[in-house]
Design a protein around this nucleic acid. Structure first.
Length: 201
DNA sequence: CACCAGGTTGACC
DNA sequence: GGTCAACATGGT
C-alpha cells in the first residue's frame, strides 16, 4: 500500500486534510458530510460559525428547529440536527475523552447515535490525531479496482498492516484516496486507474 | 428526469 | 454474520 500512497502523492499531493480550524469543527464536519458533498457541508459550517455554534456547549443547547435550518443544505437535516446535539452534549460532558486510548475512544464514539465506523475513525484520526485508517466509499472502490474486497474491518486491517503506524501518513493517504476517487473512480471510469500497472499495486 | 454524494440506523433474515 | 429501505438537499 505504501507504493500506492507514493504514487498518489506524486500525482495529487499534498492535500493537507482535514479542512477545519479546530478539532470540534472536524467532529461537526464528520457528521454533516455523511452521504453529502463537502461543498454543502462548508455552507452549513459557515452558518454555524456565524451563529457561534462551532463548540460543543452552545451546539448542545441550540434550538433544534434553528439548527435544522442552519444545516438544511447538507440533507438528512432532521436526523443530523438531532445527532449533532446529542454528540455535542456528550463532548460537553466528557471534554477529556480524547485522552483515552485509540481503541477506547473509537468504541465510545461508536456507541453514540449517528456515529458509525467511518465517522468514528475520521474523528479519531483527524480530530483526536490518533492512528486509525479511515475506510470510505472511495477507499472501497479503489480497493476493488485493485482486486481487493472485504468488509470495513478487513480493509482497515489491510491498510494498517501494510503501512507504518503514522498519523500524518494516515491523514494524507485517506485524503489522496478521496481526491483520486473524485477524479478517476466514478463507476465507469475505472479504466483510467493510475494505480494499477501490471495488475499490481 | 435519474443518479449520486467523504453514511448510519433499525428491522429483518 | 449480511442486506435493505429510510433519511433529504443540491449538483450534473
Amino acid at each position: 500500500m505504501i507504493k500506492v500512497y507514493e504514487k498518489l502523492y506524486c500525482e495529487l499531493g499534498p492535500k493537507n486534510w482535514w479542512p477545519a480550524d479546530t478539532p470540534y469543527e472536524v467532529i461537526i464536519g464528520a457528521v454533516l458530510t455523511q452521504q453529502t458533498r463537502w461543498k454543502n457541508v462548508e455552507k452549513a459550517i459557515l452558518n454555524l460559525k456565524v451563529r457561534g455554534l462551532i463548540e460543543a456547549e452552545p451546539l448542545s443547547r441550540v434550538d433544534t428547529g434553528e439548527l435544522e435550518e442552519l444545516i438544511r443544505c447538507t440533507g438528512f437535516f432532521r436526523q443530523k440536527a438531532r445527532r449533532l446535539k446529542n454528540v455535542s452534549l456528550f463532548f460537553h460532558e466528557n471534554p477529556d475523552v480524547f485522552k483515552k486510548s485509540t481503541q477506547e475512544l473509537r468504541d465510545i464514539l461508536l456507541s453514540l447515535n449517528g456515529i458509525g465506523e467511518e465517522t468514528a475513525d475520521s474523528i479519531v484520526l483527524y480530530a483526536a490525531e490518533k492512528p486509525k485508517f479511515v475506510i470510505d466509499a472511495y477507499t472501497k472502490r479503489m480497493c476493488k479496482c485493485m482486486g481487493i474486497e472485504g468488509n470495513y474491518e478487513e480493509l482497515q486491517s489491510i491498510f494498517e498492516r501494510s503501512l507504518p503506524m503514522d498519523v500524518p501518513l494516515y491523514k494524507e493517504f485517506h485524503a489522496l484516496i478521496v481526491d483520486y476517487g473524485k477524479l478517476f473512480c466514478g463507476k465507469k471510469r475505472c479504466h483510467e486507474c493510475i494505480l494499477v500497472e501490471n495488475g499490481k499495486m
